[in-house]
């Protein structure tokens, strides 16, 4: 008996990518929460705060790196933790696990979703930044730094989000757990205010987590090199940014492989 061949991986990956994009962009709450929130943040804080950070840099220019960090963390860490926890508690994952869809296709779909949401958020933020605040866009080699820092940061946060989703019983509890954690990490990582205004011991705490390094890498993209002197190390430390974010990717991947479940804990 020769059974017909299963569909190719590419075809199933394509299906999953389309499914994930529709699932995200059709859900008003997630679009508002993930896409519009950073934009509102940029408009609100940009209107209220007005520092001069030296070297002719105003707050909106400084805040671009921060708000893009918040956008990437929202698209990856928060999005994955909340929606995968939801899909686990409502039976979506269990149902998929009973089909011949390969597990890798599920994660490929999520990666496409995170990339699409992150790129949309970044484009939106750059547009508002240029049109409303006249910020300077990165130039030349900064774009390359922008790309690798964003991709590496998003990858680390996506993997962490998938791992965290396993700790939470429902999408709602994931939202209540992850959102405050993300906000606190962003706060102590110099997303909402200049990092050198964060107390020294908090800077040390922040340096353990990936958000700080993502924000620092993005500051190197949006700020003139003269401001590198205000960083704790006196430089942008791009090598260390790559190292720490890469390490978090490895740790996140290990956590995912060890903890990921297709169904609720009590149904083993």
């Amino acid at each position: 008996m020769s059974a017909p061949a299963l569909p190719s991986l590419t075809r199933v990956y394509g299906t999953r990518a389309r499914v994930e994009l529709r699932e995200f962009f059709r859900q008003r709450e997630s679009v508002v929460f993930t896409l519009a929130f950073p934009v509102l943040l940029l408009l609100a804080l940009g209107a209220v705060l007005d520092y001069d950070l030296g070297a002719g840099v105003g707050f909106p220019q400084y805040f671009m790196a921060g708000v893009i960090t918040a956008g990437i963390v929202g698209a990856s860490l928060q999005n994955m933790a909340i929606h995968i926890a939801g899909e686990r508690s409502d039976g979506t994952l269990k149902s998929l696990a009973g089909t011949p869809m390969p597990a890798s296709a599920y994660f490929a779909g999520k990666v496409v979703q995170v990339l699409a949401v992150a790129v949309a958020t970044i484009v939106l933020l750059l547009g508002v930044g240029v049109l409303v605040y006249g910020i300077d866009l990165p130039s030349g080699g900064d774009w390359l730094t922008f790309a690798w820092v964003s991709v590496l940061g998003a990858a680390a946060c996506t993997l962490l989000g998938i791992a965290v989703s396993t700790l939470c019983r429902t999408g709602r509890s994931a939202s209540a757990t992850v959102t405050p954690i993300a906000l606190v990490l962003e706060f102590v990582s110099g997303v909402f205010l200049p990092f050198d205004q964060v107390p020294g011991w908090l800077q040390d705490v922040a340096a353990v987590f990936p958000v700080k390094w993502l924000a620092q890498g993005l500051r190197s993209v949006f700020l003139p090199d003269a401001l590198a002197a205000q960083e704790p190390a006196g430089s942008w430390e791009l090598g260390r940014v790559a190292l720490v974010l890469g390490a978090w990717c490895v740790l996140g991947l290990v956590l995912c492989v060890l903890t990921f479940r297709w169904q609720d804990r009590d149904t083993r």
Partner: peptide
């Protein structure tokens, strides 16, 4: 066909 159904969706 699981007792718990196939989950929620926007599709």
């Amino acid at each position: 066909v699981l007792q718990s159904g196939a989950g929620d969706s926007q599709l």
